[in-house]
Design a protein around this nucleic acid. Structure first.
Length: 479
DNA sequence: GTAGGGTTAG
C-alpha cells in the first residue's frame, strides 16, 4: 500500500488533481503523522512530505508548499536536505515583500537541521539571494562552497547577471573548468537583460563555434534560443532582422514544433524589426498561443503603423475569451494614440479596470496623456495628470512635452519642460525640446537661456542622426 | 532513497 502510493505520487508529480487525491489518501491513512510503530521508518514520512512539497511547487501552488512544511514540522517529520531546495524556490516564486522573512527563516532552519553543508541546498540559496538583489549574500553562500559544481557556478553567473554585474559573470564563466548549455545561456540572457544586445548575440555565435570538454559541440536548447532572440529583437538597424532570421532558420532546422516561449520571442523579434509578414507567419503557425503571444502580435501591429489591425486583433482576442493584462492595454492604448482614436482609447482606458480588473499603472497614463496631447486636448491631458493616483514620472511628462512641441503650446510646454528638467537634470533631450519650443515661437531669448542652462549643468548634446538601411549599407546623416 | 540552475509580451 505504502509503496504503491509513493509510486503514484512520483508518477503524477505534474498532475494537480491526482496529487490532491493521493494527498487525501495519505491523510486518511495517517501516513503524514508520526507513526509510533518501530517497523515504520521515519524517513518514509519525510519522503512523502518532500514529494508533496515538490509537486505543489511544480503546479504553481507555492503557498501550499509552505503550509505542508509547517504541517511537516508539527507532525514531527524530520526535514532533510531534499526538503529545502523546493521550499527556497517557492520563496522565489511567491516573491513579494515577504521574502526576507520566509527566506531567512528557511536559512535558519537549514542551519538548525544540520543540512547547510549540502551543495544543492546552498545553490538554492545562491539563486534566492541573487533574485532578490542581495548579490552580496549570494556571493557569501557561494564562497562557502568547497567545490562548486557546474550548476552552482551557473546559479552564481545568473545571479551576477541579474544584478547588473556582467563583468563578474563573464569572469566566472571564463574560469569554469567545464561549461554546459546553461552556463552559456545564463551569460547570453544576462547580456540581454542588461541591454548589451550585441554582446548577447556575439556570445551565442561564440557558443555555436565552441567545443565542450569532451570535444563535442554545445547544443543550444529552447531557453538559449529565446534569450538570443530577445537580444536580436533589440539590436539596432539591420542586425536585428539579419541575425534574427539566421537564428529562426536554425530553430526551423532543429526544432520540431514552435513552443509558446519560442514563438512569442519570434513574433516579438519580427515585430520590432519591422517585418510584419514574419510576425504574422509565426503567429498563425503557432498551435498554442498564450496572452503574451497575442500581446506581442498586437504590439507588432501597433508599432508598425497598423493601428486598426491591432485593435481588430484585440477584439479577436476578446472573442477567444482570453484575459488581457497590463501589457495588452499598453499595446492597444499605444495603437489608439498613434491612430488618433481618442474616443476608443478613452473607452478602453475606462474599461480596463472596470471590466477586466486591470488597474492602470504609469505606462497606461503615459499612453493616454500621449493620446490626448497628440489630439491637442491639453485641458483634458493636464486634468488627467492632476487626478493620477501617483506622481507622474518623466515618461508621462515627456509624452506631454512632445505634444506641446507638435502643437506649439509654449506656455504649458514651458511648465512641463521645467518640471522635467528638475526630474532628469542630465537628460539632454529635455533641454533641447524645451529650447526648440521657444525657438519655434521666436522666443530666442528663452531658447538661448535654456541652452545656457544646459551647458551650465555640464551636459553635452548627443548629435541626433537619421539613418536609412539599404541592404547592408547604412547611410547616416548627422544633424 | 526524490533533488538544484537558465526562457517570452510594454
Amino acid at each position: 500500500m505504502l509503496e504503491s502510493l509513493l509510486h503514484l505520487l512520483q508518477r503524477f508529480l505534474k498532475s494537480p488533481n491526482q496529487i490532491k487525491q493521493i494527498h487525501s489518501r495519505l491523510i486518511t491513512n495517517g501516513h503524514l503523522r508520526r507513526n509510533p510503530n518501530p517497523k515504520f521508518s521515519k524517513w518514509r514520512t519525510t519522503l512523502f512530505y518532500n514529494t508533496l512539497i515538490r509537486a505543489h511547487l511544480g503546479f504553481g501552488e507555492a503557498h501550499k508548499a509552505f503550509f505542508l512544511f509547517t504541517q511537516m514540522l508539527s507532525h514531527q517529520a524530520h526535514p532533510n536536505s531534499h526538503t529545502f531546495p523546493p521550499l527556497v524556490k517557492a520563496v522565489a516564486v511567491a516573491g513579494g515583500g515577504g521574502w526576507p522573512c520566509y527566506g531567512r527563516a528557511l536559512h535558519a532552519q537549514v542551519v538548525k537541521r544540520g543540512v547547510w553543508g549540502d551543495p544543492v541546498v546552498q545553490t538554492s540559496f545562491v539563486s534566492m539571494y541573487a533574485r532578490f538583489g542581495e548579490v552580496w549574500d549570494a556571493r557569501k553562500v557561494f564562497d562557502e562552497m568547497t567545490e562548486p559544481c557546474v550548476v552552482a557556478c551557473n546559479a552564481m553567473i545568473d545571479g551576477l547577471g541579474k544584478n547588473g554585474d556582467m563583468g563578474g559573470a563573464v569572469w566566472m564563466f571564463e574560469r569554469m573548468p567545464e561549461r554546459d548549455v546553461v552556463s552559456w545561456t545564463s551569460v547570453i540572457s544576462g547580456f540581454g537583460r542588461n541591454g548589451w544586445f550585441g554582446e548577447g548575440v556575439w556570445f551565442f555565435k561564440r557558443m555555436m563555434g565552441s567545443e565542450d570538454v569532451r570535444g563535442g559541440f554545445v547544443k543550444p536548447n529552447e531557453a538559449t534560443f529565446v534569450s538570443v532572440l530577445s537580444s536580436c529583437a533589440n539590436l539596432d538597424g539591420w542586425g536585428s532582422l539579419y541575425w534574427g532570421k539566421q537564428i529562426h532558420g536554425h530553430v526551423v532546422r532543429n526544432e520540431v514544433q514552435l513552443s509558446v516561449f519560442m514563438g512569442t520571442a519570434l513574433v516579438d523579434l519580427y515585430g520590432k524589426s519591422g517585418c510584419l509578414t514574419g510576425a504574422w507567419n509565426v503567429f498563425e503557425e503557432m498551435r498554442v498561443k498564450e496572452v503574451c503571444t497575442w500581446n506581442a502580435m498586437i504590439s507588432a501591429l501597433s508599432l508598425n503603423g497598423r493601428e486598426k489591425e491591432a485593435l481588430e486583433l484585440f477584439e479577436k482576442m476578446m472573442e477567444k475569451r482570453l484575459r488581457p493584462n497590463e501589457v495588452t492595454f499598453v499595446a492597444v492604448l499605444t495603437a489608439c494614440a498613434h491612430g488618433n482614436s481618442v474616443k476608443c482609447g478613452l473607452d478602453l482606458f475606462k474599461s480596463m479596470s472596470k471590466d477586466f480588473g486591470v488597474e492602470p499603472i504609469m505606462e497606461h497614463y503615459g499612453c493616454v496623456v500621449d493620446l490626448l496631447g497628440r489630439a491637442g486636448l491639453f485641458k483634458e491631458a493636464t486634468e488627467l495628470l492632476k487626478n493620477m493616483p501617483f506622481e507622474p514620472d518623466a515618461s508621462v511628462l515627456g509624452a506631454l512635452l512632445g505634444s506641446c512641441k507638435i502643437h506649439g503650446t509654449t506656455e504649458l510646454g514651458n511648465e512641463v519642460g521645467k518640471k522635467l528638467i528638475e526630474l532628469q537634470p542630465q537628460h539632454c533631450g529635455r533641454y533641447l525640446v524645451l529650447s526648440n519650443i521657444y525657438a519655434a515661437n521666436e522666443r530666442w531669448d528663452h531658447a538661448a537661456s535654456v541652452r545656457k542652462a544646459m551647458v551650465h549643468a555640464g551636459i553635452q548634446k548627443i548629435p541626433a542622426f537619421s539613418r536609412i538601411d539599404v541592404r547592408y549599407v547604412t547611410f547616416a546623416t548627422k544633424e
